[in-house]
Each structure stands twice: as structure tokens, then as C-alpha cells.
Amino acid sequence: MAEAALKGGFENPPIDSARAFRRITNAMARPGKIETLVGATPPPPMSVAAGTVLLTLCDPDTSLALLETLNNQEIRDWVTFHTGAPIVSAQRADFVFGAWDNVRPFQTYKTGEAQYPDRSATLVIEWEELKNRGAHLQGPGIKDIAFLNLPSVQPFVENAALFPLGIDFLFCSDDQIAGLPRSTKVSESS
């Protein structure tokens, strides 16, 4: 294991993860709201925000998948050293980390069971930038309407149609994060 894997963790785990969790909570509770998320410095090309999500939520009790560009030895070592989370296939993973170009089709991932819709995957997607424009978002957590520059609309419409099953998304770009839970109704900007 390279020395780099040992670096880039939380400086003060109880405090850093508490602060990070609040940001992630805000993102998931208010779809489209862009939050700043820092604390971890993962090996490239994983973003600071995605790395911070990973350290905040993953541990030996969660399985995670790293897709394509994020599936390199440095990141795998980093994940193992800092979290001990088992790295599994995308079909079985509780958390999936990948760049937008590598995460589709969403049918690959766990969407939960009728009695346990929470047993579903959370996708952490690396996206080029986050802006409050573009796709229209409506639903829980949104007062009237919110906007987010989603890379596409149709896959999210299909995912929301599965409700209460479905997968939940966290979009990351550098040190920014925005949430898109399955409960959000997404439509094209008119």
C-alpha cells in the first residue's frame, strides 16, 4: 500500500464527519441546494466532496462500488485504509461512486424491496459543475420549485416513478454537493 493511501483522511473524525453530515443532510433534504463539502482529500480523480461523503458514511458495514475512472489502485487503497468498507460489484453496492459517463444504466443498482425500500443504493456521481439552472425539481424539500443542471432528465424521471423504491443521488463537483432523492420529480426546463 502506497503512502498516499494513508493520507487525506479526516483530521478530527468525530468533528469533521459531524460537520460533513450536516451538509449532506441539507443536500438530501433540500434537493437542488448546493452545499460546500470538505474534510477529505481523496486520491485523484475523486473529488473532495465525494471523498468526504465516503468517509462520512462508509465503513465495514457498507459495501461500495467504484466505477471505471474512480476504480484505481490508489483510491481502492485509500478507501480500504480509511473505512474498511468492502468493495463489491455495482449490483450489490450500498454506495456507488462514479463519474456521470460511467454510472448508467441505473437499472444496475439496488432499488430496495417493497417492505424495505431503504435497502437501496446511494449513487455518488462526479459531475463537471453544479449550478442552479436547468432541470426543474419539485417534491419534498422544495418550497415551490428548484433548479439543478442535471446531465440528463429521463433517467431521473424513471427512477422517481419507482417510488417508494428507487435510488438516491448525490452529485459532486470539487468541494460542492447537491442531492437528488428518489422523491424528487424532475422535468425538462421549459
Binding site: A18, M28, D59, D61, F163, P164, D168
Partner: peptide
């Protein structure tokens, strides 16, 4: 402990996603 907090935090996020 941190592992317990993470378990609770994951449950909170799924709760928010499925109101």
C-alpha cells in the same frame, strides 16, 4: 462511537429520501 453514528446517519438520509 463513529461507526454507530454512521449507521444512524445512513438511516436518516434514507428517511429523508423516502418521507
Amino acid at each position: 462511537d463513529e461507526q454507530t453514528k454512521r449507521m444512524i446517519r445512513r438511516a436518516i438520509l434514507k428517511g429523508l429520501a423516502i418521507p
